[in-house]
Write a protein that binds this DNA or RNA. Structure first.
Lengths: 346, 346
DNA sequence: TGACAAATTTGGAACGATCCAATTATCTAG
DNA sequence: CTAGATAATTGGATCGTTCCAAATTTGTCA
């Protein structure tokens, strides 16, 4: 009896109505008589019916309530939080999401996109793997599926985008370090060959220029955008003949690594060396010393991206839109300023 | 012309064959003539056909190649890595996954499960939200959908499980601290009212008893399983009249918090106070000091969970299976032992 | 060439829900 | 009591695929 799943027809038979009526009940249509509705609902509960969304989506008019999310590195808590933000709004909008981790592999990403297409996603939010090309996203756009690219850019792709203002954020951070009296400020961590990296470095460079300070390439030390990368970068920075006294780090993960590296070298971050991160990951606040960082609120960004996508899905017409999320410097202790002035402002 | 999507019938017409033949080509059946196959494939590419998996899954025999994953806290990097591990094996097995974050809300979790059922998932891996009851998972099991519970237990649920050996891990960790000469060892962080917490505390208690040491309840200081929770716990621990000199922490996040808190109190973790974590998150290795921790390899656990689920899906019969993942102590620097002996062992 | 086997191909009839047009039940008022 | 309106219900036909049984083509050998 548990063989085949329970369908509308089974319900109809058991309730003594037609499948059409059952369908109307399922859609909470006002056309159906209250008594009938009650009886049908009772039978539905009794037989343990589960709605088959796949079957419903078959009819050409219907759209699928499934959206795809692809991130390049879920183990990075920035992206994990981004995903959580999206999850929140998608869930309350009645969508489910295919979430996949491309792990920076363009091939894997391509497979995942294909698979998602076959499953009929209504839209896609993607933080593209390094090396993603416009052609990878073309077919989606061509079949009218809205795409929102977040965090990273895909040059030439006609999709909506939501980036944070990397340039302004980096500039603000460096200005702050300058105002604290630093004159040799490094840029540490991150993979050099990316747009985000370039934008942040440009902000760093321009802020230094503005202050009349030198911005030699030796002070830009790329590595990976991780804690380990931060350790490596600060080691190299400290070994320079004219070592920096502060640094803007590519992201918070790298900044934590820089703090670790400083301690390993006997220096206390915040006191002996100014450290500023980028992203404002949750741990930034509770770390010791608390990390001064450029806040981009990953969860909020995820929510906005999801809202943007939903808007496009509902609009029908796909009109690419570019949003740049504002950003603000959160001064805590690791830069050497926060702690002392924190309670003095009142 | 781009109105309706391209279907097998369109392909059939354009290639001058029947839809049945196209279907055979799609399934790479050996029944079809090479020349025909080539032509059909050419047309498929030309018209930009995309397979409609939803329609295919409609036929009763087919099973869906979609699995559900629900975790209770994606922002915790332990779970993020767990998810990544699952993603890996699911992806190479040709599955896509609905991944959702219950954020410890049983209601949200219930909704998500319902939604996943409607979408016809072939199986579910869940790290249950606190307070999940057997009845929440019952309907799935009843309709023959395999369920694997990971990390946490759901009492009374007839599902497969994959937990790490919390008891043994905690015991090993405490034994190690004892062997380093500590006699007042605390248990810090974590939410007291959970199975995992109870198991780890029991290991802690038994190891102390084994060594003839006292295990007073005052040394068990619960809080949240986060960095902030660790900070709070160590603060309380240090304020005790007979303060501990070392601690086993509920998890790595809490352990990092404990290190932060120690530093804030002017003590250096590893030198002035022994800290051991639990989970072996990636950052444990690169942190300074590197964290001594009980390794449970979250990614590996995710992979195993995924494999277990796939096995059950393929087996047809759902035979609940309980796996307890072995665990091992990774000695690094935060306990005060690792660093000195690291290079001396050769 | 004809008979038979093997290799290919092909119409439907599902699958589970929706939706339109058409039907039937119920109500209202003259 | 009935015409006409309104409320409620209901058969198909349809969505895009699979799969079975049956039909067609091709190949082999006496």
């Amino acid at each position: 009896m548990n063989k085949g799943r329970v369908t509308v027809v089974d319900i109809a038979r058991a309730a003594g109505v037609s499948k059409s009526t059952v369908s109307l009940v399922l859609q909470a249509s006002p056309l159906v008589n209250e008594a009938t509705r009650a009886k049908v609902n009772a039978v539905i509960r009794e037989l343990g019916y589960v709605y088959n969304r796949g079957a419903a989506n078959l009819r050409q008019s219907a759209s699928s309530k499934i959206i795809g999310i692809i991130v390049n590195d879920l183990t990075n808590s920035f992206f994990a939080e981004l995903a959580v933000g999206m999850d929140m709004v998608m869930q309350s909008a009645g969508y489910v999401q295919f979430l996949s981790n491309s792990a920076e592999s363009v091939d894997r990403q391509r497979e995942v996109i294909a698979s998602m297409r076959e499953h009929g996603i209504a839209g896609l939010i993607i933080s593209p793997a390094r090396g993603t090309e416009a052609v990878d996203l073309k077919p989606l756009a061509a079949s009218g599926i809205p795409v929102v690219a977040v965090v990273r850019n895909v040059v030439g792709a006609k999709v909506s985008t939501l980036f944070s203002d990397n340039y302004a954020g980096a500039k603000d951070a460096v200005r702050h370090l300058v105002s604290l009296g630093h004159s040799r400020i490094a840029f540490l961590g991150g993979i050099a060959n990316t747009t985000v990296f370039a934008e942040r470095v440009q902000g760093w460079r321009d802020a230094l220029a503005e202050a009349g300070l030198a911005a030699p390439d030796t002070l830009v030390i790329g590595s990976t955008a991780s804690r380990a990368g931060g350790v490596a970068a600060i080691e190299r920075a400290l070994s320079l003949q004219d070592a920096p006294t502060a640094a803007l780090c590519f992201n918070d993960a790298a900044a934590f690594g820089v703090c670790d590296g400083l301690r390993a070298a006997g220096k206390e971050p915040g006191r002996d060396f100014g450290v500023v991160g980028f992203d404002d990951v949750i741990e930034a606040e509770t770390a010791v010393p608390a990390l001064t960082t450029v806040s981009v609120d990953p969860q909020g960004m995820g929510r906005r991206a999801a809202q943007l996508l939903l808007k496009q899905i509902n609009a029908g017409r796909v009109e690419p839109e570019a949003i740049v999320g504002s950003v603000r410097l959160v001064v805590r202790q690791s830069c050497g300023a926060g702690e002392k002035t924190r309670r003095m402002s009142a």
